[in-house]
Design a protein around this nucleic acid. Structure first.
Lengths: 190, 190
DNA sequence: GCTTGCTATGCAACAAAGTGCATAGCAGGA
DNA sequence: TCCTGCTATGCACTTTGTTGCATAGCAAGC
């Protein structure tokens, strides 16, 4: 279960409640590990049972109470054990690539629909990239020598930026390929 | 279950046995969808039960018999349904990125170990890229206008190539970042 | 007063994926 | 002759991930 380790890293960077973690997974951490709040709450419960984290109930003004979790020494030790284990090759799961190859067995109308879908998909990635760039300007504008944590966070963010730029360039290639396949006389040159 | 759809695409491109599919998933298809042979045999059985594929027993000289699977009309229809559904955002799972951020909570020795691990990881990706480039030279050398299937296979392969190149460049960035963090006087400049 | 939306936590059921193990014949080398 | 490695298929068990649902208080707008 690597979600556990992603949570340990996030909690070491900053203690948080399940809800806050879920939002981090929707934003910064989500760039390299996705998880829903249901998964997070379940894993947090297990981790508490295994004594990797401890929670403190915190009251808030005009908001429900929350439980803020911190990493225990045992949790930190578990993270270090995992850090020292070999990195496993990443499991790729590119649904869009499967669909593109599958489009060879569809008709022109189906490929036109896929083209529209790719355009939507491209817009999503463009906004993700914009979010990363905004985050970079916000958190890493200072050119002074950063500490280890900031330097490592920044290099991971640069990875996310490079990934999104690569995806956008590739999607342009995909769009051009799809358009060349079924030239559309109704819409000559958009 | 999208493994089912990846298998349908692969079998439409060329009928195959479970074993052959597993090897394709280790090579060309594995660039956008990973699966082990156990997963593949299991899903093939389900797909046969659902009448998406039919198998023919084929005897071989000095090799065990194999069962070659082909897509039925129902299977093709199921694939088209799936093709016309919206693409879901890809689920990212970058263990290495988690470890890099986690390295902030490790000591210099731990980060040195991570650095060696990243170098190994980089070598793996370099050989994957070399494999893709060899495949491209082998299968797409002909500059003549390709048919839809070849054009779509090629654009997906270009995606794999772009991905690997991006990863290699990022890993160089990671290595430089790690080296800057803990300058090693024992090994000044490799 | 009602609806929508946000914070905040969680269970239950189900679907999918991963890990470990087992079998079996043949080829080729030590 | 034994060991290794390849083709070929598959089961059983465990871990993860997804989906749907449920609760509850507060704030803001209509």
């Amino acid at each position: 279960m690597s979600l556990e380790h992603a949570i340990l890293v996030s909690l070491l960077e900053q203690p948080a409640s399940g809800y806050e973690l879920a939002r981090r997974f929707d934003r910064s951490i989500g760039r390299f590990w996705t998880a829903t709040h249901q998964q997070i709450y379940r894993v947090l419960k297990q981790m508490a049972d295994d004594d990797r984290i401890t929670g403190v109930q915190v009251g808030q003004e005009s908001l429900p109470d929350k439980k803020v979790w911190s990493v225990t020494p045992a949790g930190r030790a578990a993270l270090l054990d995992w850090l020292h284990a070999p990195v496993r090759p990443e499991a790729v799961r590119h649904e869009l690539a499967v669909k593109i190859r599958g489009a060879a067995f569809d008709d022109a109308a189906g490929r036109a629909a896929l083209l529209a879908e790719v355009e939507r998909y491209r817009a999503d990635h463009e906004s993700v990239l914009a979010g990363y760039l905004a985050g970079e300007r916000r958190d890493f504008a200072d050119p002074a020598a950063p500490d280890a944590r900031a330097a490592l966070q920044h290099v991971v963010l640069r990875g996310g930026i490079a990934y999104e730029r690569m995806v956008l360039a590739w999607l342009d290639d995909v769009l051009a390929t799809l358009r060349a396949l079924d030239p559309d006389p109704e819409r000559p040159a958009p």
